[in-house]
């Protein structure tokens, strides 16, 4: 029979602690009133337990900490991740809340804006429109996985140098979409880039500098691979 995943499992102690922390933080983020209330409670030294949280916060908390229904595992930025989640957990929610990788943003939450774009097995997807369970066993890359230690990815350098952002909210998704696109089309024209990024919205820059960034990244990635190629050729010639 099919692998069915409806048996609830008790969340681990570590997980319960993390979820409690998440709920606390969610209240901070969701409502100014809650922030004040929480701060006041903290000043008094009491646990901010009984704050009426916003609907969003309560729904989210319920999703992340209760009714864990299935275990999923995936490689995220080269690191193995495994968590108990409800089947309805969206990939973006999983990445942000279970993996605590908050570089991926939720923008429109309706598959329009692309702020939540990540790579799944090398292809760009909108992680707000994919269940985490669908990525079970996949190789996922988020914006946190772009840089190689202190060395920025070419797309990051290009966005920095070409002023490819203003407020920065769309940037993670924009860069991930661009990386996925450049892997499919390493020699794009201006128009190719605009079409390639049609799934990503930016409300600040007017796209000009974003397109310039992606074109610059394409050039520097080509240069990089040419250098790598000539190094390989050199080493072949010298027999090293």
């Amino acid at each position: 029979m099919l692998p069915s995943c409806s048996t609830p499992q008790a969340p681990s102690r570590e997980r319960v602690t993390r979820d409690r922390e998440f709920r606390r933080r969610t209240r901070f983020w969701n409502s100014q009133t809650d922030v004040t209330f929480t701060e006041r409670s903290e000043q008094r030294g009491s646990e901010p337990k009984k704050i009426a949280c916003t609907e969003t916060a309560s729904v989210r908390a319920e999703v992340t900490c209760q009714d864990a229904a299935m275990q999923i595992a995936m490689l995220v930025n080269g690191v193995g991740q495994s968590h108990d989640v409800e089947a309805r957990t969206l990939l973006v929610q999983y990445l942000r809340e279970s993996c605590t990788l908050t570089g991926t943003k939720v923008g429109c939450d309706t598959s329009s804006c692309g702020a939540c774009t990540v790579l799944v097995d090398g292809e760009s997807v909108k992680s707000c429109t994919m269940f985490a369970a669908q990525a079970d066993g996949a190789d996922v890359t988020t914006v946190e996985g772009l840089a190689d230690g202190p060395n920025w990815h070419a797309i990051q350098t290009a966005f920095h140098e070409q002023h490819g952002l203003k407020c920065g909210y769309c940037t993670a998704g924009m860069m991930m979409a661009a990386v996925g696109f450049l892997a499919e089309n390493p020699n794009p024209t201006d128009r190719d880039v605009r079409l390639g990024l049609e799934g990503n919205l930016c409300r600040c820059t007017g796209y000009q500098n974003i397109v310039a960034s992606v074109l610059a990244a394409a050039d520097s990635m080509k240069l990089g691979s040419m250098k790598l190629g000539s190094m390989e050729a050199d080493s072949m010639e010298t027999g090293q």
């Binding site: 029979m1 099919l2 692998p3 069915s4 995943c5 409806s6 729904v59 989210r60 999703v63 009714d67 229904a69 299935m70 409800e86 089947a87 309805r88 969206l90 929610q93 939450d109 309706t110 269940f131 369970a133 079970d136």
Partner: peptide, 21 residues
């Protein structure tokens, strides 16, 4: 936005999927 709860069944074959349906 979060969908209502559901049971998730992953099909590993067409026959398995038809069985689940």
């Amino acid at each position: 936005m979060i969908p209502a709860s559901f049971e998730y069944v992953r099909a590993d074959s067409v026959d398995g999927l038809l069985g689940a349906l």
